[in-house]
């Protein structure tokens, strides 16, 4: 019970945050300077408008309409896309585009880790030396370059000038795995470099701190091999920081994916959001943004719980 309690409390807070942020979005929609119904059905008869008002719960007060919206939303009933004549549901757009964005974020994280782990350990080993200082300074700069800036640079140099990689459109993994990775290479690299840089910096600090710790000296004096020490004694505490960093950077990654998808015309979730924005599909937009917020919150809480698993010391105090 003592172990379950903090988890339960965390889940309670999670639910509160989810409800509050989606409610906030609901209220935002009410703030629209124009009538949503008039916007969707500008030519409709009064009866049609009244019916639509009813289906969008706009004839109720804010709280009731929010509760009705949310109870449908969690069942996947998010209304329809009005611009296409009402044929397509919002949910179908979500199921089509969300996996693509999740894949991009997954590849980006993998790319960032593949770069960050060896680089972080290397710079920590050579802490204070010239090579460490050069790499660390470069990384600090790299972590502040906006991802769209990097994307344009790569498009011009790698895509247009050298013609090594395609810079537009998306190919599914099932259609052609090779082309799939080729098309996602520049988007994921431009998203991942900044992430890799911030991971490396954190990992470096952690590894340096861990190497100075008594238990590492102890392990070394026991005669454990370097790789064993690195994996079990140094890497485990460092992975806590990585998880925290991943959670902290998730928001920026979601925002970045949005922009990158628009730049590269990848039909992911960000593209859907941009499209809904451009065509003023507010009904769909509300659900899209709610999904983003919920995903982000769940990711953060999962990272928090995983940290508790990896580092038992934090369980009680946090």
């Amino acid at each position: 019970m003592t172990r379950a309690l903090p988890i339960l409390r965390r889940l309670g807070a999670l639910l509160a945050v989810i409800v509050l942020s989606t409610f906030f979005l609901s209220c935002l929609l009410r703030l629209l300077p124009t009538d949503l119904v008039d916007m969707i059905l500008s030519m409709g008869t009064p009866q049609e408008k009244a019916a639509l008002r009813h289906t969008l719960y706009l004839d109720r007060d804010v709280f009731t309409s929010y509760i009705m919206w949310f109870s449908h939303f969690i069942r996947g009933d998010m209304g329809i896309i009005y611009g296409t004549g009402g044929g397509e549901t919002v949910w179908s757009h979500v199921t089509r585009s969300l996996p693509i964005s999740l894949l991009i974020m997954l590849y980006t994280q993998v790319f960032a880790l593949v770069i960050a782990v060896p680089l972080g350990i290397f710079t920590a080993y050579r802490a204070g030396k010239k090579s460490d200082r050069a790499i660390s300074n470069t990384l600090f700069t790299a972590s502040s370059v906006p991802n769209f800036a990097l994307a344009f640079l790569l498009i011009i140099v790698v895509g247009v000038k050298l013609k090594w990689l395609p810079t537009l459109e998306y190919v599914g993994f099932k259609e052609n795995p090779f082309q799939h990775f080729k098309h996602l290479a520049i988007p994921c690299i431009s998203l991942g470099v900044g992430l890799a840089a911030s991971y490396t910096r954190l990992l470096r600090t952690d590894v340096i701190a861990a190497l100075k710790d008594d238990y590492v000296t102890m392990a070394a004096s026991k005669g454990l091999s370097d790789s064993r020490i690195l994996l079990t004694h140094v890497f485990r505490p460092a992975s806590v920081t990585l998880l925290t960093a991943a959670a902290l950077n998730m928001g920026a990654l979601i925002g970045g994916t949005l922009v990158i998808e628009t730049i590269f015309a990848i039909p992911g979730f960000g593209f859907e959001i941009a499209y809904a924005l451009g065509t003023k599909e507010f009904v769909a937009l509300q659900s899209f943004i709610a999904i983003t917020a919920i995903g982000y919150v769940i990711f953060n809480v999962t990272a928090d719980l995983l940290i508790g698993v990896v580092d038992p010391r934090t369980r009680g105090s946090r």
């Binding site: 942020s21 920026a252 979601i254 925002g255 983003t292 917020a293 919150v297």
Partner: peptide
């Protein structure tokens, strides 16, 4: 909790 709720939406979104 209000701060957390607003921060739970990625800032660009």
């Amino acid at each position: 909790i209000i701060f957390s709720a607003v921060l739970s939406i990625p800032n660009l979104v």
